[in-house]
Design a protein around this nucleic acid. Structure first.
Length: 848
DNA sequence: ACACGATTCGTTTTT
DNA sequence: CGAATCGTGT
């Protein structure tokens, strides 16, 4: 095996880690210690070693870049994989190659993704490449792997063996319950906001005691966080953030566990690395060990900073630079060959994204020809846009021979789908909408699951409350309240408090608890299918929905739940009674140092203080976990040939022959709300980049002069992104300077094909104004930024460079201060909320 | 306990 | 505009 990372490969370049180097080009990127990306001169020595093993047939079909990535030595590496560059192929081929060349046994591999879909895809592809048991590897989502880990070490993690997982809905209702119990003013502390706060803390790795408290509001929120944690612990449930955080803490605090896994996993592969948050990266660090901590494993991180579109939910692109620095990454490879799109499309994407300032830098290329020009279309209204779309779609299918399912209609926000749907529906054009309620999130399914969860864990108060009176059985709000009081007084779960209640309310409650208890006994030893059938019957759920006039769909869904359970059993191999999870057999501590392929398969290893794998779980428990971690598909009619409607976010990772990007208007795309955030505009631009790169052959960009939003007609300027595309790749299907989007310069664009009746002075969307300092591309003129006032230090004591605290946004750094007296305002960069201008007379800012 | 009007509030999303 | 939640009346 090759030498591990240790001393820097290029001593002459001192400690400065090289973030990027591109073979054959004259420059590369370097990351300064403060994280800033700088361009420096190229150093040929920094190139990664050529592949030691070029003969494998696995590698035959790869291009040079991919080949280098797949055959890297077992050292940390970062692959910057552009859209359509064969990222998943590299990832899976890498694993296959490592196994095939006996560099690692399946048990030594951990591959982590963000979505179940990606994990499934990876396993599937691997299986088609090699005759290998993919279950011997740890392949899954961050949360899925954490769950697996915590199930194995539930005692060390301080969890009951039957711990259940709260999804976002469950978490919110648990928080609402908590707020009610502690008489929290829901106007001052909306449960949603408390939820956001708690999730944010966990993502930052903070327990209640770690959160800096500077004002009463935060203090109260931290109290609630603390209470919420106690509640979850009492009830034996964990939320998504807790899965991550607790796994991280267990690795951090338990040296035996940590050492064990560090010995075990020789190769960690991370997909979509640009989407990792702080905690996920910290978790990876614990698992892999930094250089100098005796880490023995090699991380292969694959990502694309240009496709980072989840900063709004805590993703930190900066993890890429941190990874390179902290792990002393020596191998960095760019995958820039695109196999998806014609060059007009690709050049458009490249040109657009080049407007972003903070990039690692990467330009996609293709061998395919120019292809068709990108069509830009303007419509007078959202309604007309939808009409035109339907016509174009018809033509696309009839004349140009596109398959319907190979066409996607993309939009920035879900609300935009309605007009499109209406038009498609009226035209009788087959379509399919992605997004919305997923299978396991439907109310009737959650009800059924709540019964099942109560059978597994009677202390799950969230589930208890969900179904205690559903279907209605005479247990009203006041009975429940009494029960909650009793439980609180006794410090026990609602289930346990029932026995103490009296009266007819108590009798109803007792009957409910008895029903669940009886079900638990009756279903022992039954198959999962039998269990669920029995529960649906005995709880009266099906009967209840059958009696409802709108309940047919719900009954159907409940029947589908039985099917889902059935296919879960067959797919996951869960039999009748308790079974061991089909996981890899663990290596014993004695196998330390071995990455040999025989060791892991030899038998169940013994571990001193804990058992890692071979977790015993009932099929029901396994199914409930599955339901919590995998929300299920939105719609099942997959086979139908229908045009696909989805948000741009949802389209990431997909590709289509033809793509329509609709609603390209200022305020919508880029979205007005994104403009407040730090990096907001650039993230919107990346989003646009993702949208463009979905298209293989044909791309339409469409915007409308007016749009119905929130029941009001809004007059929007066309998106600045349209101006950021290379003119030579475009074809303006409607006159570029026609219509109202150019009022003020073109002199009243009468060329519009609109139905007339426009107001003389359109009420331009007041939200659409760019923030100060941002370039405005439209013809509208903006006030220039106020001239900074440099006078004597004002009494507020706030000045550029100082750290301040704001009750809502937390701590931030002052970038600039302007104006005096009542007019004074400060520009502050808040890590979680971005850059904001705050009027000092209004905002409560305290210098830290 | 439940039904029906009044209200509020509107990005993006996975686990 | 339309959903989702809220509050009041029976």
């Amino acid at each position: 095996m090759l030498a591990r990372s240790g001393p820097a490969v290029c001593p002459e370049v001192d400690e400065k880690p090289v973030l990027w180097c591109q073979q054959g080009s004259s420059d590369h990127w370097q990351v300064e210690p403060d994280g800033e990306v700088m361009r420096t001169s190229y150093n040929r020595r920094m190139l990664s070693d050529p592949s030691p093993n070029a003969s494998s047939p696995l590698l035959a079909q790869l291009n040079d870049e991919q080949h280098r990535a797949v055959a890297l030595p077992p050292e940390h590496a970062l692959i910057l994989a552009g859209a359509g560059s064969g990222k998943t192929r590299v990832l899976t081929t890498r694993i296959a190659w490592l196994l095939q060349t006996s560099q690692v046994s399946p048990g030594g591999i951990l591959a982590v993704t963000f979505t179940n879909k990606a994990a499934k895809e990876m396993k599937l592809r691997l299986q088609s490449m090699l005759p290998v048991n993919v279950n011997a590897m740890w392949i899954g989502t961050f949360h899925g792997l954490c769950n697996r880990f915590l199930r194995a070490h539930y005692q060390l993690a301080g969890l009951p063996q039957t711990f259940q997982i709260l999804d976002t809905q469950d978490q919110l209702s648990a928080i609402k319950r908590l707020c009610k119990q502690f008489n929290v003013d829901e106007d001052r502390f909306p449960p949603k906001q408390v939820q956001y706060f708690i999730s944010g803390c966990k993502e930052d790795g903070q327990r209640p005691g770690d959160v800096p408290v500077r004002d009463d509001e935060t203090r109260r929120k931290v109290e609630l966080y603390q209470l919420y944690e106690e509640q979850c612990q009492r009830e034996g449930v964990v939320d998504f953030g807790e899965l991550m955080l607790r796994s991280y803490e267990l690795l951090r605090d338990n040296v035996h566990v940590r050492e064990h896994y560090r010995r075990r996993f020789r190769h960690i592969l991370v997909d979509e690395f640009q989407d990792t948050n702080k905690l996920q990266y910290a978790w990876l660090k614990q698992l892999a060990g930094l250089p100098g901590e005796g880490g023995e494993c090699a991380i292969l991180a694959v990502g694309d900073d240009d496709q980072s579109i989840y900063a709004f939910r805590g993703a930190r692109v900066g993890n890429m630079a941190d990874f390179v620095r902290e792990f002393q990454v020596k191998h960095q490879i760019k995958l820039e060959q695109n196999y998806r799109s014609f060059s007009n499309i690709l050049d458009s994407a490249n040109h657009l994204i080049s407007h972003n300032k903070t990039r690692l830098g990467k330009t996609l290329r293709t061998d395919q020809g120019a292809g068709e020009p990108v069509r830009v279309v303007e419509s007078p209204s959202d309604f007309a846009e939808a009409q035109w779309l339907v016509e174009e779609l018809r033509q696309l299918v009839k004349q140009d021979g596109f398959e319907r399912k190979e066409v996607a209609l993309l939009y920035r926000s879900n609300a935009q789908s309605r007009v499109l749907e209406t038009a498609l529906f009226n035209a009788g054009f087959p379509y399919r909408v992605y997004g919305g309620l997923r299978f396991f999130e439907r109310a009737e399914i959650k009800h059924a699951l709540a019964y099942l969860r109560l059978m597994e864990n009677p202390n799950d108060d969230t589930s208890f409350l969900r179904v205690v009176n559903f279907p209605p059985r005479g247990i009203g709000a006041r009975s429940v309240e009494q029960l909650q009081d009793a439980a609180r007084a006794a410090g026990c779960s609602l289930h346990d408090a029932v026995s103490a209640t009296t009266g007819k309310a108590g009798a109803n409650l007792a009957a409910f608890v008895a029903m669940v208890d009886v079900l638990r006994e009756q279903t022992e030893g039954l198959t999962l299918r039998e269990i669920i059938d029995l529960v649906l019957d005995k709880t009266g759920l099906v009967t209840h929905y059958r009696a409802e006039k709108e309940g047919a769909d719900r009954v159907e869904n409940l029947e589908e739940l039985v099917n889902a359970a059935e296919s879960f059993v067959t797919q996951e191999g869960f039999g009748r009674s308790a079974v061991a999870l089909p996981q890899a057999l663990s290596q014993s501590p004695a196998s330390q140092g071995l990455s040999g392929s025989t060791q892991a398969d030899a038998g169940l290893g013994t571990l001193d203080e804990f058992s890692e794998d071979g977790v015993i779980m009932s099929p029901l428990a396994a199914f409930l976990t599955h339901a919590s971690l995998e929300a299920g598909d939105n719609q099942a009619q997959a086979g139908e040939d229908a045009v696909q409607l989805m948000t741009v976010h949802a389209s990431k990772g997909l590709e289509f022959d033809a793509v329509f990007i609709t609603g390209l208007e200022e305020g919508l795309f880029p979205h007005e709300n994104a403009m407040n955030d730090f990096d907001g505009l650039e993230e919107e631009r990346r989003l646009m980049y993702v949208a463009i790169t979905r298209a293989r052959k044909r791309l339409y960009l469409s915007h409308s002069q007016t749009r119905m939003l929130h029941g009001q007609t809004r007059y929007n300027l066309k998106s600045r992104f349209l101006e950021e595309l290379p003119e030579e790749c475009l074809k303006w299907v409607t006159p570029k300077n026609g219509g109202f989007s150019n009022i003020g310069s073109a002199g009243g664009g009468g060329a519009s094909a609109s139905g007339g009746g426009w107001p003389q002075t359109p009420a331009f969307n007041r939200h659409a104004r760019p923030a100060w300092g941002q370039s405005s591309l439209s013809t509208e003129t903006y006030k220039s930024p106020p001239v900074p006032v440099q006078k004597a230090e004002p009494e507020h004591g706030i000045a550029a460079g100082k750290n301040v605290f704001h009750t809502k946004f937390g701590e931030g750094k002052v970038l600039a201060v302007e104006g005096v007296g009542a007019d004074a305002r400060a520009q502050v960069n808040f890590p979680r909320h971005g850059v904001k201008w705050l009027a000092l007379s209004v905002a409560k800012l305290t210098v830290v």
